[in-house]
């Protein structure tokens, strides 16, 4: 379970960093760049979570004899 909880902290870390960076960029007047940072951070985290959900559904498929 060690590697898995690390992913949780990775997601939280990316979220906090993206929030900080976009706040700084917005206060510096670069609103469009802040928007892009948020979108890219969201895509990265979404990719991680989607990979895990895929793993989970594959496991459930094999466990509950769907294949």
């Amino acid at each position: 379970m060690g590697a898995d909880i690390n992913t949780l902290f990775q997601i939280a870390g990316i979220g906090i960093i993206v929030a900080m960076v976009s706040t700084v960029l917005e206060s510096a007047g670069k609103k469009d760049i802040a928007q892009w940072v948020s979108v890219i951070g969201f895509i990265v985290v979404l990719y991680m979570v989607a990979t895990w959900i895929h793993d989970l559904f594959q496991t459930i498929k094999t466990v509950f004899l769907f294949q």
Binding site: D4, T7, L8, G15, M48, V49, W52
Partner: peptide, 10 residues
Amino acid sequence: FLITVFAGVL
């Protein structure tokens, strides 16, 4: 929201 989803998956 994504953290919540991931915690559920774990």
